[in-house]
């Protein structure tokens, strides 16, 4: 199982990034190998539709679980289509969230906010 968490910095002491779509990196934890990798979020600089592109990135990395503070509707559509479950982050640090998830303490994110797309004007 692969678990992705948006992070501000490329290390395990990082905080979770408040913005899912525009996080600079994702930390991806593979529970089968217990290995951690950091993936650059190529969607972060998008003028618009960053959430969708970021979701595509996670789908392409065969992620199963996303832990985030919030998530937009468009991104959620892609994640759900890719069978990625979304859980609500409750801690400040990325590792604390991962631990909480593995101990079954996190809940699924239920309130997806409507898509506030990067529009033209």
């Amino acid at each position: 199982m692969k678990i992705a968490i948006p992070v501000d910095e490329k290390n395990e002491n990082s905080r979770i990034c408040v913005s899912y779509g525009r996080a600079p990196y994702y930390m991806i934890f593979d529970s089968d190998s217990a290995k951690v990798e950091f993936v650059q979020n190529t969607a972060a600089d998008s003028a618009g539709g960053a959430g969708i592109k970021a979701a595509q990135l996670l789908v392409n990395h065969k992620v199963n679980i996303l832990i985030t503070e919030r998530c937009g509707q468009n991104a959620a559509d892609v994640l759900i289509a890719g069978n990625i479950k979304i859980y609500r982050a409750t801690k400040a640090l990325v590792m604390d969230n991962l631990k909480a998830f593995l101990q079954g303490e996190l809940e699924e994110l239920s309130d997806i906010h409507p898509g506030y797309h990067g529009h033209k004007n």
Binding site: G49, A55, V78, G115
Partner: peptide, 19 residues
């Protein structure tokens, strides 16, 4: 360029982002 499309087993179109 607008990230209005995604592919997850099929192509998804996000109309409101489409330019």
């Amino acid at each position: 360029k607008f990230n209005a499309l995604a592919y997850v087993g099929r192509v998804m179109v996000f109309e409101e982002i489409c330019h």
